[in-house]
Design a protein around this nucleic acid. Structure first.
Lengths: 194, 194
DNA sequence: GGATAAATTCAACACATGATGAGTTCTGGT
DNA sequence: ACCAGAACTCATCATGTGTTGAATTTATCC
């Protein structure tokens, strides 16, 4: 029992799914440590792989991040789901979609990763600004002729509440049911969007 | 010109203000890199001082952070200023106080530091949760008999907007005037608090 | 089956980090 | 005038970081 975990070099037999495994670990680690906090080596370790392999696949750390952030949440799928609601229940619709997405760790991860990274890393902030601006705000405002700044106020309300609920985990917000949150927040969003 | 910047060891003559200088640099660096992103050595460098001196004064990195975060914003001074307003303009009052504080870099720094750090560091998150819960939410709710969760929804609105405005710098939110923001946000907060 | 390419590891690099211990110079109290 | 302690720097340690180049094994294509 010289070394328990020491695999030989060289390609593994069978079809290769390692790349996806790395992306999975990357998403998880970026999600709860942010860009700078998640180390390449930790990502490699979590994927059961040598750090150099990560480089081989993605070139450098930024490459890993960008690859992991593809589809932070597909707005083309989500926005219609929000805007499909009748005009007078747009607010409730938006709250429910947000809650549904954030409740599922799989779908929450990329958003959290983006948000956490953007808070302390200039380039990540630029990526998020870009994404949020062109893929979310502009479309949402364009589709229903709502002033851009009001869409942003609505998004701000949800971002703030999500941080208090999922990052800071402040009570009673963290334990509130979906219905309670809808009752409280929907009128606000409706006010901005209606 | 062997070494331009090389001060001799030993105590400096005259009264000593170095401790405050270190805290100043620490506050600045924590504010825009967060706890993990701001290195002791960078703080020392910014204060024009040897890294070991920082240890001498504060024991370890967490000591520096805690010392730098004393008075993130004195709630005992701020809350009365918000709550002094007549009941039907509480919302406007809160928006204005938030904007005033965030506009001044000196006062924004500790809050940003706290927030940025809390996003990626577990201990910083605990500190912030503690602070926000007992020093802000509980008092604000207690003083005027408002349900705790509504205070948090109001705070969430402001936190989200502040992030979009000062961290992500999304337009047009980032360039909006105080009056525009008040007009848009005050009714929301009034709804939660009234 | 033989050549080329892909997947994978290892060893090492240059550098940054937080921390420690010892040494030097000044201040303050007696 | 002395001396304990505070202020201050230096050199150093152990660890972690992103990145690189070479070596080895397997898969794929002609």
């Amino acid at each position: 029992m010289t070394e328990a975990t020491r695999r030989p070099p060289g390609r593994r037999p069978g079809p290769t799914e390692t790349r996806e495994a790395i992306l999975g670990s990357a998403r998880e680690l970026f999600a709860d440590k942010g860009y700078d906090g998640a180390s390449l080596r930790a990502i490699a370790r979590a994927a059961g792989v040598d750090p150099a392999l990560v480089h081989h696949f993605f070139g450098n750390k930024e490459g890993v991040f960008i690859a992991a952030m593809r589809f932070p949440v597909d707005p083309a799928e989500l926005l219609p789901r929000i805007l499909a609601a009748p005009h007078d229940t747009l607010g409730e619709s938006m709250v429910r979609v947000f809650l549904t997405v954030w409740e599922d760790p799989e779908r929450r991860a990329p958003i959290l990763a983006m948000l956490r990274s953007a808070m302390t890393n200039e380039r990540a902030a630029a990526m998020m600004r870009e994404f949020v601006t062109s893929a979310l705000f502009a479309r949402a405002a364009g589709l229903n002729d709502i002033p851009l700044i009001r869409v942003q106020a609505a998004a701000g309300q949800m971002i703030g509440v999500m941080i208090l609920r999922y990052v800071l985990e402040v009570e009673p917000l963290a334990s509130a049911t979906h219905d309670e949150l809808v009752a409280m927040l929907a009128p606000t969003l409706q006010g901005y969007l209606g």
